[in-house]
């Protein structure tokens, strides 16, 4: 398959929307969205944790739905809207969910935080008034190795029911 592999290495132009702005990148077919976000576009707020879709640190929203950036080829993102945690809000104009994480001290090392925020954001959009157990289930697929789950659940709970999380669209 040498020829095929060489053929496969050929880069193609991929255009998608990243946090509201169109981006054009050159990506080889075997480059994952995670690789392109981090290594080509410098979007290091998206973390590489496990590479198996288990840990949740590479979570991004694809057309609003949380997905594993490590398990999507960059070429598959063509024409789609990709949102990282920076699309929720950034310094100076934090999203209510981010402010709640700050207020509740829901981040220790911070590695899981971007994924937690994006999964929580998508969850609250569908479930504006969840129970604490529902929140725990919603983030079951996001691992926090500091085991700071209690404060993370507190922060999400603080945003639930306020309607704020659901009302603010990702930029």
């Amino acid at each position: 398959m040498e020829t095929a592999a060489a053929e496969g290495a050929a880069r193609a132009g991929v255009r998608f929307v990243l946090n509201g702005s169109p981006v054009d990148v050159w990506a080889a077919p075997h480059e994952t969205l995670l690789a392109v976000l981090r290594d080509t576009l410098g979007a290091t707020e998206v973390k590489y944790g496990c590479g198996e879709g288990v840990c949740g640190t590479c979570t991004v929203l694809l057309d609003g739905a949380p997905i594993n950036a490590c398990l999507l080829l960059a070429v598959q993102a063509a024409g789609r809207a990709v949102t990282t945690v920076k699309g929720l809000g950034a310094e100076g104009h934090l999203h209510p969910l981010q402010r709640a994480f700050v207020a509740h001290e829901a981040a220790q090392c911070g590695f899981c935080t971007p994924g937690m925020l994006l999964v929580a954001h998508a969850f609250l959009a569908d479930h504006p008034r969840p129970t604490r157990d529902e929140i725990r289930s919603a983030i079951a697929g996001n691992l926090c190795r500091c085991t700071g789950y209690t404060r993370i659940v507190d922060a999400i709970e603080a945003c639930a029911g306020t309607g704020k999380a659901a009302r603010v669209e990702p930029r």
Binding site: M1, P29, G51, E52, G53, L71
Partner: peptide
Amino acid sequence: LAGGQSLLPLMNLGLAQPGALVDVN
């Protein structure tokens, strides 16, 4: 390649190294 949620982990871990992928999405 359909959803890729089993195939891509195997490829990320180097356990599968297919010469060609047919993306049916």
